[in-house]
C-alpha cells in the first residue's frame, strides 16, 4: 500500500485461480511488499474501471495471501473475469480481527453458513496450529446445495488434524449422504461444554442471528459469541460512511463484533439502526 495515500491500491499479481463451486473462485495473489494480516481482517480489492469490493482474507498468516470470492455483481463479476497472470489492486488489511483470548483453554464452536467459511478458515488454521492453547474445536458448516459446498477437501484434512467437522446442506441431492437441514439444527451433535466455550459465527445475516441465539441459549456467554458483519463499503477506513451501524462503522470498529456489543447497540438505539434492518436488530 502506498505509504502516504491509503486510497491508492498496490498492484498484486494473481498467481493462481481455483474454482471452488459454480460461482466461487479462490485467488492466490502475490504482492510486491510483504503484507501481514490477522484472521478476520479484509482488503479492498480493486479492478480498475470496475471499482473496489471488501474481501476477507481466507488464508492463514503462514500461507500466501488468498481471497475466496463469490460472483454476485459488478466488481466481483470483473474479478471472476481475471486469470492467473493478471493483476488486481489491493489495499489493507483493514478492520479488527477475531479475538482469540475468549477461546483460550476452552471448547470452540465455529459455525459457518455458505461463504461464511472463507473468513473463518484462517481462524481454523490458528486453532489447528496452536492446538494446545484450546480445548476441542467443532466446526458446523452449512451450504444451500451440494454444488455450493466449498473447502470440502480441506474439511477432510482439518478432521484429520482434530477438528470435529459437521457438513450440512439445506437442499440435498442424490450425491449427498451427510447431514441436511440448517446448521443450527445440528447443534445438538456438538458435544461442547457450552457454558465454558467460545463461538465464532459467519454467514448470511439471518443465519448469524439464528446461530447467535442458539449458542447463547445453550449457555455460551454473550461476550464469547463472536461474529463478523457485512455492509456496503466504499472506503474501508471509516470515512465514506456507508457501513454505519449506529455510532459505529463496520469497517473500522468491526467487522468482528461480539453478540454482547451488538445487543448493547440494539438496546441503546433500537431496531433498524444500522445497515441491518429489523431482522438483525430483533434479537
Amino acid at each position: 500500500m502506498n505509504a502516504n495515500n491509503v486510497y491508492t491500491p498496490s498492484e498484486a499479481l494473481i498467481e493462481e485461480v481455483i474454482t471452488l463451486s459454480r460461482n466461487v473462485n479462490l485467488y492466490t495473489v502475490k504482492t510486491k511488499e510483504e503484507i501481514k494480516w490477522l484472521p478476520g481482517q479484509f482488503f479492498m480489492v480493486s479492478v480498475f474501471g470496475f471499482g473496489e469490493a471488501p474481501i476477507s482474507v481466507t488464508s492463514s498468516a503462514r500461507e500466501p495471501l488468498k481471497f475466496c470470492i463469490k460472483k454476485v455483481g459488478h466488481v466481483t463479476g470483473a474479478i471472476h473475469g481475471l486469470r492467473a497472470g493478471d493483476t488486481i489492486g489491493i489495499r489493507g488489511p483493514y478492520g479488527n480481527a477475531f479475538p482469540l483470548d475468549v477461546a483460550r483453554g476452552r471448547d470452540v464452536v465455529i459455525i459457518a453458513g455458505g461463504l461464511g467459511i472463507a473468513p473463518l478458515r484462517p481462524l481454523i488454521h490458528e486453532f489447528m496450529e496452536n492446538g494446545k492453547d484450546y480445548a476441542r474445536v467443532f466446526l458446523l458448516s452449512g451450504s444451500k446445495t451440494p454444488a455450493d459446498v466449498i473447502y470440502s477437501e480441506e474439511c477432510a484434512l482439518w478432521e484429520k488434524r482434530g477438528i470435529r467437522v459437521t457438513l450440512t446442506v439445506d437442499c440435498p441431492d442424490d450425491s449427498w449422504d451427510v447431514c441436511t437441514g440448517l446448521v443450527t439444527a445440528h447443534l445438538d451433535k456438538v458435544e461442547a461444554d457450552f457454558q465454558n466455550a467460545a463461538s465464532y459465527i459467519c454467514g448470511p445475516e439471518v443465519m448469524i442471528e439464528a446461530a447467535m441465539k442458539a449458542v447463547s441459549a445453550r449457555g455460551i456467554p454473550e461476550e464469547r459469541i463472536i461474529t463478523t458483519l457485512e455492509a456496503h463499503m466504499k472506503c474501508g477506513v471509516g470515512k465514506c460512511g456507508h457501513c454505519y451501524m449506529g455510532p459505529k462503522y463496520i469497517c473500522t470498529d468491526g467487522p468482528v463484533f461480539s453478540y454482547k456489543e451488538l445487543r448493547r447497540l440494539a438496546e441503546r438505539f433500537g431496531k433498524g439502526h444500522g445497515p441491518q434492518d429489523d431482522p438483525m436488530w430483533g434479537y
Binding site: V72, E230, H232, H242, G272, H273, Q276, D277
Partner: peptide, 17 residues
Amino acid sequence: GFTGMAGGALPAEKRIL
C-alpha cells in the same frame, strides 16, 4: 441505495430508518 448490498437488498429501505 446508500446501504444497498450486493444482490439488491436494501437494508434501510424504510424512509424512517
